[in-house]
Design a protein around this nucleic acid. Structure first.
Lengths: 190, 190
DNA sequence: GTCTATACGCTGATAGAC
DNA sequence: GTCTATCAGCGTATAGAC
């Protein structure tokens, strides 16, 4: 009785609204962190009602989980040198433009305990992959340090906004960091 | 008419209460960040009433400012190599024990905009000092990167609690980071 | 499916009793 | 100086009208 294929309005409109809400949520979570972000603000930014957000996502926690779930880009395995370079280009990608997704995670991970747990679990496989590419007994610590450096640079650039770091080009940063990454991915010549 | 020197109770007791409140505030700010920390919780932890905290410090913002103000340990100037080593030992100090003060700042800086501004201002002289010790045109960027690495390591160890980084000894971390710091404080041989 | 009205808790802050 | 009582505001979440 309904139009056969005129306007696939129902499910499609819902997914459209959901998408708008998620985009708005990512931006506001990135800007304000978990606590200061309100459902009302997200709804208002998405042009919908606050009750609708609750109806779609159930709770603020679930909305946050959906907003920050991230594909976790693969970094190809290889020799330790190759992995270092892959990490650097991955960092470069995250230093270009506005990495709202990364920022939402980063800012919220540091305030929301559940977010920290979720993130640790999500980052583990990537960390293991990195560990296996490093041919030293302390590979796991080295991998963690690399992760710490990447996050430190992103946080200080976008969250703390240290001027010299915020103004520098990704290439400049990567070039300065290359020796660091190499020393951490390859054992000392001895 | 009052006792000459029996019990210097008045001012002394006040300072004692203030000190207990500040200690409690530091711990809770470090654990929960600015937003999630409540005056009531701080007062309860210090064994006083919430109203008293307000009476002493005026507002939550002022309490936070007093709690996280930090002497900002001097790092002696010198050759670039010496500065790198000084930075490493400074990092080692902050990786030993429970750096509640650092954590309160770090966690809150990432959520509270005012805290970020305050911290940037407080860290500037130290950053400048570091910059002057590095003999390259891009010294300011290098100094910012060093700062980012230090904070990244601390954040990932204490806030995100990456296991391998949390379990490692300060010495182990410092040894792995030494080549990084050296490559950033000294220009390439070329 | 969408929005309005509202319940209920917790926050920072104030005024005033002891 | 210290604490109790209370205010006004905002947060999430729910119930129900269109």
């Amino acid at each position: 009785m309904t139009e056969p294929s005129a306007r696939p309005t129902r499910a499609q409109q819902r997914r459209q609204s959901e998408a708008r809400i998620l985009t708005a949520a990512r931006e506001i979570f990135a800007e304000l962190g978990y606590d200061r972000t309100t459902i009302r603000a997200v709804a208002s930014a998405a042009g919908v009602d606050a009750g609708l957000v609750m109806h779609y996502f159930g709770s603020k926690d679930l909305l946050f989980a959906r907003a920050v779930e991230v594909p976790a880009d693969e970094l190809p395995a290889g020799t330790s040198g190759e992995v270092a370079e892959a990490l650097l280009t991955s960092l470069g990608r995250r230093l270009t433009g506005e990495p709202t997704a990364s920022l939402a995670v980063l800012r919220s991970v540091l305030t929301n305990a559940d977010a920290a747990d979720r993130y640790r679990a999500a980052a583990e496989p990537q960390l293991n992959q990195l560990t296996e590419a490093i041919p030293t007994p302390d590979a796991d610590l080295r991998a963690s340090l690399l992760s710490a450096i990447v996050h430190g640079v992103i946080a200080e650039r976008y969250l703390l906004r240290l001027t010299h770091l915020a103004d520098a080009s990704p290439e400049q940063i990567i070039d300065l960091l290359r020796p660091c990454f190499q020393s951490l991915t390859t054992p000392p010549p001895e």
